[in-house]
């Protein structure tokens, strides 16, 4: 029974850590299928994590925190969209700028709201995102470890289905993907390329913001400077691993979630490995995944290429 329970704990932790990545990776899927590379997800996730934790702390309402986190991520994404779409800037350069602005702004605001502290004050347990299935299973049971998750975990899986449906089954999705593959073709058929790109980038920011909050007000209970540290990039790697598809990205996130789950689990055992080394595991997996899959993966054909109408 011990082994089964341990397995349950590992799976549970993996799902918990995969969820924030899933939001963010879905954001990446949306943006890059519309042809805008968004390495600024890291920054958007950070501003979301801060906003979520702060609003939840002051209002006592985690859902309000969660939603405003999305709005904050979306707001930052507007900047990215203006740079990349309207001013046809290099997407990577703009993304790097987002990754400076996001954390910088978060820290600055944090110091204003929390008397100069570099972290927000922790939420009370009942001010965190709730666990809807709490009490359904006996405590410490295998099923409880797996299924007694924060609501944000369930929402993440729901969003995978929704984003998949949006991309592949709706008019909007068809247009969005056409813009990422062959914007000129879309343009000649009367599709508003710029509008679609703005929509996709802003939505990706909202998703990244939600991802940040899924970390700061569910997995942990406050925002601190080191909270995101690379999660946005890991989500990006998961998206590439998943071949720019929502369900693929989900599997990528679960892989990284398991890595994180193992880190946490092994850290709690008597294994004599320094925790710093263990903490490297997800990043090492990221590098390996990128090395193995980036060569073969083919994203949308016009991904990262600024689109300019052929006007004089």
């Amino acid at each position: 029974m011990k082994a089964l329970n341990d397995l349950g704990i590992i799976i549970g932790i993996s799902l918990m850590y995969a969820a924030p990545l899933m939001y963010t990776a879905l954001g990446g899927v949306i943006s890059e299928n519309a042809g805008v590379v968004n390495i600024g997800l890291e920054g958007m996730m950070t501003i979301g994590a801060f906003t979520g934790a702060t609003v939840a702390y002051f209002t006592g309402n985690p859902w309000l925190g969660f939603l405003t986190a999305g709005l904050a991520g979306g707001a930052l994404a507007i900047l990215h969209a203006i740079a990349c779409v309207t001013f046809t800037a290099d997407h990577v350069v703009s993304g790097i700028a987002m990754n400076f602005i996001g954390p910088g702004l978060a820290l600055y605001l944090c110091k204003i709201f929390f008397d100069g502290a570099a972290m927000t004050l922790p939420l009370d347990l009942d001010h965190k995102i709730p666990r809807p299935l709490n009490g359904l299973f006996p405590t410490d049971s295998f099923l409880n470890s797996i299924f007694n998750q924060y609501a944000t975990v369930y929402i993440a899986f729901l969003l995978v289905i929704l984003v998949w449906f949006m991309l592949y089954k709706t008019k909007l999705g068809l247009r969005l993907r056409s813009v990422g593959e062959h914007p000129r073709a879309a343009d000649t058929l009367g599709v508003n390329v710029y509008k679609i790109k703005y929509f996709a980038v802003i939505l990706s920011g909202i998703f990244a913001g939600l991802g940040g909050a899924a970390l700061s007000i569910a997995v942990v209970s406050n925002y601190r400077v080191s909270l995101i540290s690379g999660q946005g990039f890991i989500a990006l790697a998961a998206m590439i691993f998943g071949n720019w598809k929502p369900h693929g990205a989900m599997w990528g996130c679960l892989l990284f979630g398991v890595a994180q789950g193992l880190v946490v689990y092994l850290g709690g055992t008597s294994l004599k490995v320094s925790s710093q080394l263990l903490a490297m595991i997800p990043y090492i997996i990221t590098i390996i995944v990128l090395m193995v899959f980036v060569g073969e993966a083919t994203g949308p054909a016009a991904n990262g290429i600024p689109y300019e109408k052929d006007r004089d």
């Binding site: 993907r177 056409s178 593959e181 062959h182 000129r184 073709a185 879309a186 000649t188 058929l189 054909a301």
Partner: peptide, 9 residues
């Protein structure tokens, strides 16, 4: 002249 088709569609 250069077709305006989305290859993956």
């Amino acid at each position: 002249q250069h077709f305006m088709l989305v290859e993956t569609f």
